[in-house]
């Protein structure tokens, strides 16, 4: 009789995992808007809809399951958020209205913060883009392209000569950056925004 009343508890091998059961909440709370992330029913509409799913190590659905399971390191190491093209096919089809691309953005920021990014191509591109914007208030294609391609795709440069020359000769790329007038204001706003982000 006593046997029936005993509840056998499976030992958790990694005690850290218990702590990380907050991971899903953390991701949801760091995401802009109401992500509905906790509502996932694992149906796979996102992974089925994704035009770049083939390149992903984990489908979005699987990634969300990993977040639930508290697999912080594995989830943040995944290349999935970096392969997301923000096409929003998954969002409009998701039966649970989960803001999937916005969750992907959050995971990118978390991966960068945690220094768990495996391939620096995408984060470098984003960072270079953002650097330019923070310097000039506008994007600066040729600066961005030359810096990015030299570092990550030096071999592609020869193939890209015709395009680059075409873009330049047709004045579709400026050789010098355009700067907004009130750069001081933008810098002050971004500085304060970064402080607020760090406080969270």
């Amino acid at each position: 009789m006593t046997e029936a009343l005993t509840i056998s508890s499976t030992p958790v091998s990694d005690p850290k995992q218990i702590e990380d059961l907050t991971l899903l909440k953390e991701v949801a709370s760091r995401t802009a808007g109401v992500s509905n992330l906790e509502m996932c029913i694992q149906c796979g509409t996102c992974g089925g809809s994704c035009p770049s799913a083939v390149e992903m190590e984990d489908t979005p659905r699987r990634l969300f399951a990993m977040l639930r399971a508290g697999m912080r390191e594995e989830a943040l190491k995944s290349n999935t958020p970096w392969i997301c093209v923000s096409c929003y096919h998954c969002v409009v089809r998701c039966p649970q209205n989960i803001h999937i691309p916005d969750v992907m953005y959050t995971l990118k920021t978390m991966a960068v913060d945690a220094k768990l990014v495996q391939d620096s191509t995408a984060p470098d591109f984003s960072q270079t883009f953002v650097d330019m914007v923070e310097d000039y208030g506008r994007s600066f294609e040729i600066g961005l392209a030359s810096r990015h391609y030299l570092k990550h795709f030096p071999l592609r440069l020869t193939n890209m000569v015709p395009m680059g020359m075409g873009m330049l000769s047709k004045k579709r790329m400026n050789l010098t950056p355009t700067r907004i007038k009130n750069m001081k204001q933008l810098k002050a706003i971004l500085k304060r925004a970064k402080e607020l982000e760090a406080e969270q």
Partner: peptide, 18 residues
């Protein structure tokens, strides 16, 4: 100024929206 395209969101949320 630039809208940040799809790049800024992946770097930092609040600055991207600001």
């Amino acid at each position: 100024n630039c809208c940040g395209a799809t790049e800024y969101f992946g770097i930092s949320k609040t600055p991207a929206y600001a």
